[in-house]
Design a protein around this nucleic acid. Sequence first.
DNA 1: TAGGATCCAGCTTTGGATCCTT
DNA 2: AAGGATCCAAAGCTGGATCCTA
Lengths: 221, 221
Amino acid sequence: MLPAPPKDEAELLDRARALRGQSLESLSARFGLSLRGAAVATKGKVGELLERALGATGGSAATWDFPALRVELKTIPLGTRGVPSESTFVCSVSLLDADRAEWDGSWVRAKLARVLWVPVEARADGSRAIGEARLWTPTTEQEDVLAGDFEEILGRVGAGGIEGLSARVGRWLQLRPKAAHGRVRTDAPGQDGDRVSTVPRGFYLRARFTRAILADPGAVP
Amino acid sequence: MLPAPPKDEAELLDRARALRGQSLESLSARFGLSLRGAAVATKGKVGELLERALGATGGSAATWDFPALRVELKTIPLGTRGVPSESTFVCSVSLLDADRAEWDGSWVRAKLARVLWVPVEARADGSRAIGEARLWTPTTEQEDVLAGDFEEILGRVGAGGIEGLSARVGRWLQLRPKAAHGRVRTDAPGQDGDRVSTVPRGFYLRARFTRAILADPGAVP
DNA sequence: TAGGATCCAGCTTTGGATCCTT
DNA sequence: AAGGATCCAAAGCTGGATCCTA
């Protein structure tokens, strides 16, 4: 029996906090999603498990996890020392209109405007448990940096083409390949003036950013 | 013929700037200090060469390189990308009175109060040349951080003993082993209440600090 | 393809070890 | 021992590659 969507932020946060301390194994049993098998084969499963446990409805559509609240859910795995060590996927990039994208009105901004961070703590015995969830909105200073990264990245895509853009660009946001097999079309002309295809990309938050804001929500790392 | 000590800071800085662009090989020929042989066997030679070229007098005594000016000389080797990649030795630590040392009046503070940084640039062909020298005094903000590091490090030495102190402590300053063979006595009681000896230690500036202040003398990395 | 992410080889960083001269 | 520092193996970081489901 899966929960209905939360009616407001308070209910969402209450639910998330009620999960604190519970093991992934017990959540997995309650919500019917197996985490057995090699780690490499369960990528993304923990995120889906939390979606079910909290009543998220976004599914695979390009929307928020809680559309009525405009809140995005992000599960953040913590290492044995209690801090994030991996980057966090935000959303795919639309290459077709990179040259006219702006921060205001962007999908990145919309998703990061209100985030429920749910840490997943690694225990010494190898098990994992839900940590303390928190709702976050970027401070003005934080949003300025994110906006700067966004526009620098898409500016380079528009100017020099995506193939020359490295994941090194961007202080907190970066653009990286997304998915192993997919190919998407772009409008960038190839050598013969034709369209070329490229591997899909996504925006990611660097680990040093999530590390900092979990420690201090207003941090400017 | 070695130069006399400079009479003031202006003369010192003029001399250092006059060396800009000169190769270590030509300086070595002029001042009679060979840099031939394995790199491992010439540690410290470049520093001594610059001391001679600029008229430093400190020698092996525990004083400034230019005692009359109270200026410390530090040669900073730059990698092929033009930035420092190694830490910089400041001075040895006196273990006998670690528990009553304070930043004001400390030897670390005295040495870092006025520093002539002389970069040594690595060229693509393997040769090295003198870069742009600069005189530096820490800003108030920078000195606050250095003082904090200093007191945290010596506080731990006084509290827990030096053997448990890691080089990880300190944002810009760190304490590390100094010299391969030496042993010094400390006042810290051993397991049997007796005195113990330990490997000598020194204060070092982390590479990220020298990297930052060479790019911007007022930086707070 | 969108969403949910983690894996891991290779590069970078660095803490501890070491070298020379006076 | 003080001064002058650099070496280098191992840990840390991260950019690019990859995995699963609807």
